[in-house]
Nucleic acid binder design. Structure first.
Lengths: 248, 248
DNA sequence: TAGTGGTCTAGACCACAGC
DNA sequence: CTGTGGTCTAGACCACTAA
């Protein structure tokens, strides 16, 4: 009879999660973990359907979601590829207004003030949200020979052990991390502060000058990657952000 | 023959947009426009399938997307309903730290300092992004009898004409707008400033005190709704934001 | 218990971009 | 021209829950 045809799913597999979710989690995991770095070609729908023993429609639904989420890019005939994430700066941007005014080609450099590998102190462990070994870096960024940002960063060495050997000569720690961990979540806390003596000295301003501080904590799948405090001197720096009630 | 059965789509309708997109835009439009306010029950999948002359699977795909986007909420047996948007404060929160410290139940009030209906000046038209009549409101918010926010707001009367008659006695302009226009997009620009004389007077602080300013512009489908400048005195106020590399 | 959403299929046609 | 993604269907079974 056609009874067996009517029940296409295998009844002896109760499957807690939906097939959707299983496939989605699988593919998403490979992308977020970096196992499939940006540019990687993802198998064709037909192949995936065979691998997961399901219909192409089911795979297609997952791929549609991944594409809508911006994790992959699809082109007819060519195939499907892991997308390079638009960095957070696309939606959350630190604008240096003097830089804007002086247009392009401002000479930029930065210097590392200190670099330390250690177990975190209690406050640092709380700040980062992890208790394992950390890399603590303090540095200054300059634009047009003027200091424009003081950076105090903790990096979770258990998640990013390569950071231990990295000299950060070419890329600043932030830029290097973005290249290493392209997909991540971030929490921001922004406030105005009056410069204390240390900050004032480092940023060549007077104590009490208004500054903008940004505390950012970055995680990937809820695992802390890095925690950074950025201090921008004076009133010429601006954070811009954009929130959309979800594009579809 | 079964040839006609093999081609279920009507060939004389070339349809530029996919059926997906058409249905999605339709439903999305009714939700965003407020024609279907939060809580409204959306027709059942079967009914929608009949209305749009398509299969339930097609409708289901759209509904799944709307649900993933947070615009609707679905419950088995009960049906599908327009969701009340979690306000932007859920992802972008202005934290008053003294309020947190003093826990719940701080006495709150606010006062309107000025209220003006007029055509916008050039700078205001640019700030709002619209040239029609505006309602300009200046007000102060207090917590525990201390001023904690100075607000300077423009409202686009062409989009929200009801604001003209609204006394804002119960709800502050911001809260009132959220109730009127639940779904909107927002751009933020945040910076540290030194209080000028006017701000210092209004917030009962000394000139030059660091303050946090937030400029927010709110749009709905790219049409400006309101532009507001918020100034928080001192260093005890914090903006927190959260960015996720897109949840799926 | 009945009815809704949730999932899945096997197959079909189409549009488009690489080859 | 070939193969990929894009779309759509008619129907099936399942899971949950409100009534």
């Amino acid at each position: 009879m056609s009874a067996t045809e009517i029940r296409p799913r295998n009844p002896q597999e109760p499957q807690r999660r939906s097939l959707h979710q299983t496939i989605l989690d699988d593919l998403k995991g490979r992308i977020l973990s970096g196992k499939w770095p940006p540019g990687t070609q993802i198998p064709f729908e037909q192949d995936l359907a065979r691998q997961f023993a399901c219909s192409r429609m089911t795979v297609n639904k997952v791929m549609t979601q991944l594409a809508a989420a911006g994790l992959i890019e699809r082109r007819r005939k060519a195939g499907t590829f892991v997308k390079r994430p638009q960095s957070h700066t696309a939606i959350m941007t630190i604008v240096d207004i003097r830089s804007e005014v002086e247009a392009l080609g401002l000479p930029y450099h930065y210097e590392i003030l200190s670099r330390d590998i250690r177990m975190p102190r209690a406050a640092e462990a709380e700040r980062l949200g992890a208790k394992g070994r950390i890399l603590a870096i303090v540095c200054r960024h300059f634009a047009a020979r003027q200091p424009f940002c003081f950076e105090d960063r903790l990096i979770n060495l258990e998640l990013v052990p390569e950071a231990e050997k990295e000299p950060f000569e070419i890329l600043s720690p932030g830029a290097w991390l973005v290249s290493k961990v392209p997909w991540s979540d971030a929490e921001y806390r922004i406030r105005a502060v009056a410069a204390d003596d240390e900050i004032a000295e480092k940023l060549l301003i007077e104590s009490g000058t208004p500054c903008l501080t940004i505390k950012r904590r970055t995680t990937i799948d809820a695992v802390p990657v890095t925690a950074v405090n950025l201090t921008y001197p004076g009133t010429d720096h601006e954070v811009s952000a954009r929130f959309t009630s979800r594009a579809i």
